[in-house]
Amino acid sequence: MIPVFDGHNDILLRLLLDPARRQEIFLTGEGKGHLDLPRMKAAGFAGGFFAIYLPSPIAHDDQDYQTLMQNPPYALPLPDLIPFAAAIEPAVQTAGHLLWMERASEGALKICRTAADVRGCLASGTIAAILHMEGAEAIDDSLDALHLFHAMGLRSLGPVWSRPTIFGHGVPFAFPSSPDTGPGLTDAGKRLVAECNRLRIMLDLSHMNEAGFNDVARLSDAPLVATHSNAHAICPSSRNLTDRQLDMIRDSGGMVGLNFSVSFLRPDGRQMADTGWDPILRQMDYLLEKLREDHLGFGSDYDGCTTPDVIGDVMGLPKLVQALSDHGYDRPLLERLAHSNWLALLDRTL
Rank of each mutant, 00 (worst) to 15 (best):
K190N: 10
L199K: 07
H207Y: 07
L199H: 06
G182L: 12
R191T: 10
G182M: 10
A194N: 11
C196H: 07
C196G: 06
I201C: 03
N209A: 07
L185V: 05
L199W: 01
S206P: 03
R200L: 01
N209V: 00
P183R: 08
D204E: 07
G184E: 09
N197H: 10
T186C: 03
A194R: 15
I201S: 04
T186S: 13
L203H: 02
P176Q: 15
L199E: 09
L199R: 14
P179V: 11
C196S: 13
R200F: 00
L199G: 05
R198K: 15
E195L: 14
A188R: 08
L203M: 12
G189C: 11
N209M: 02
L192E: 02
G184K: 03
R191S: 13
L199N: 09
N209S: 04
D187Q: 11
D204F: 01
G189H: 07
S178R: 07
D204A: 00
P183K: 11
I201M: 05
A194P: 11
D187R: 09
L192Y: 04
K190C: 15
R198A: 15
D180F: 01
D204K: 00
M202P: 06
D204S: 00
N209Q: 11
M208C: 14
L203R: 06
P179K: 06
R198L: 14
S206M: 09
G184C: 02
L185M: 13
T186D: 04
P176H: 12
T181A: 13
S178Y: 03
L199S: 04
P183N: 08
L199Y: 03
A194I: 15
P183F: 08
S206K: 05
T186L: 01
L203S: 03
T186R: 08
D204G: 00
